[in-house]
């Protein structure tokens, strides 16, 4: 039932190959893969385990800020900071998870709790002098690019995020087809029935949430290197969490690669609208983008992925 996402994987690799010649295309490719990976990871928790997190920007921000702080304040390589970033994000996710699951927060209540945690982080960081307050932090260029991860060309970034995306898809596929995936989906569909059938729900919810947080922390760390600038608005804001949700809903939350599909349509679409219309009629592109979202949500409530891959109904 859970088939290997061969076609999406091939398309992504082909997309990378096609974009190597053009800096702008490669930028769109990198953003698509970056947001696609984060949305796929978000959906492992939200779409497959029923943990509707509205605060994933917290973990993205932890990834981005850990790297940015290590690089700017101590001159450390992002490679050194990356494991630390993932560790901090996973520990935070476990702590939030233990608190929420211990007290039985489910559904929207869990979403609101996670949102609250990410907003607390947003305001704390906005006030922290050593993290650049709301002005953010600029990562310095220079040094060996494979150590500082500051490249002049775009393709190395494309290659890195491609590897992260493929690893996420393969790991997600391997987990979903095994016991873990079945247990996650049973928890999503009915927690009490799952527990009565031998599913240790507490541990599997924690695993799902922490795994999802760890993957988006990697993406946040990558973001810091790619953009070379982090500020609370771009990596800790609620808009970021909502974006992951939008990509997943539009692409299809019942599919591993649905959120990637959503990102692969909406990110290039918003770029195209900005180029064609945004320059002459500023704002109209945003109106059109919003209309596109509303239309998709109205006419394809199961997401675009559901068009072809409808579940079998006898």
């Amino acid at each position: 039932m859970i088939r290997f996402p061969l076609i999406p994987v091939l398309l992504v690799v082909a997309g990378f190959a096609a974009a190597t010649q053009d800096r702008y295309l490669m930028d769109v490719f990198v953003l698509t893969c970056l947001y696609g990976t984060m949305a796929v990871a978000w959906n492992l928790a939200a779409g497959f385990t029923g943990l509707l997190s509205l605060g994933h920007s917290l973990f993205i921000g932890i990834g981005a800020y850990t790297v940015a702080y290590g690089v700017t304040a101590h001159g450390l390589s992002p490679w050194v900071m990356l494991p630390l970033a993932v560790l901090i994000a996973v520990v935070c996710a476990l702590a939030i998870g233990v608190l929420c699951f211990r007290y039985g927060l489910k559904g929207y209540y869990f979403g609101i709790a996670t949102l609250a945690f990410s907003e607390i982080a947003f305001f704390l960081v906005s006030a922290a002098v050593w993290l650049g307050r709301s002005d953010g932090m600029m990562l310095p260029a220079g040094g060996d690019p494979w150590i500082s991860l500051q490249f002049r060309a775009k393709w190395p970034y494309g290659l890195m995020i491609l590897v992260v995306l493929l690893a996420t898809l393969i790991a997600g596929w391997a987990l979903l087809r095994a016991k873990t995936g079945y247990y996650w989906r049973s928890i999503r569909d009915n927690e009490e029935a799952a527990e009565a059938l031998g599913v240790p729900i507490f541990g599997f919810k924690l695993f799902s949430f922490a795994l999802s947080a760890g993957i988006v922390a990697v993406c946040g760390a990558f973001y810091a290197c790619y953009v070379a600038f982090v500020d609370p608005r771009s990596v800790l804001g609620v808009e970021l969490s909502i974006q992951l949700l939008v990509f997943s809903i539009i692409g299809g939350m019942g599919l591993l690669w649905g959120p990637l599909l959503g990102a692969a349509i909406l990110i290039p679409a918003s770029e195209l609208l900005r180029i064609w219309i945004g320059a002459s009629f500023y704002g109209v592109n945003i109106v059109l983008y919003a209309s596109l979202l509303i239309g998709l949500a109205l006419f394809l409530p199961q997401g675009l992925g559901a068009l072809r891959w409808r579940r079998r109904v006898s």
Binding site: Y182, Y183, R185, D189, N190, A193, A194, L197
Partner: peptide, 18 residues
């Protein structure tokens, strides 16, 4: 309390994983 997002076989498979 069925797992409504899953097939009949998948419902039973969740239990068999015990």
């Amino acid at each position: 309390r069925p797992f409504r997002g899953m097939s009949v076989l998948e419902n039973v498979k969740v239990a068999a994983f015990a």
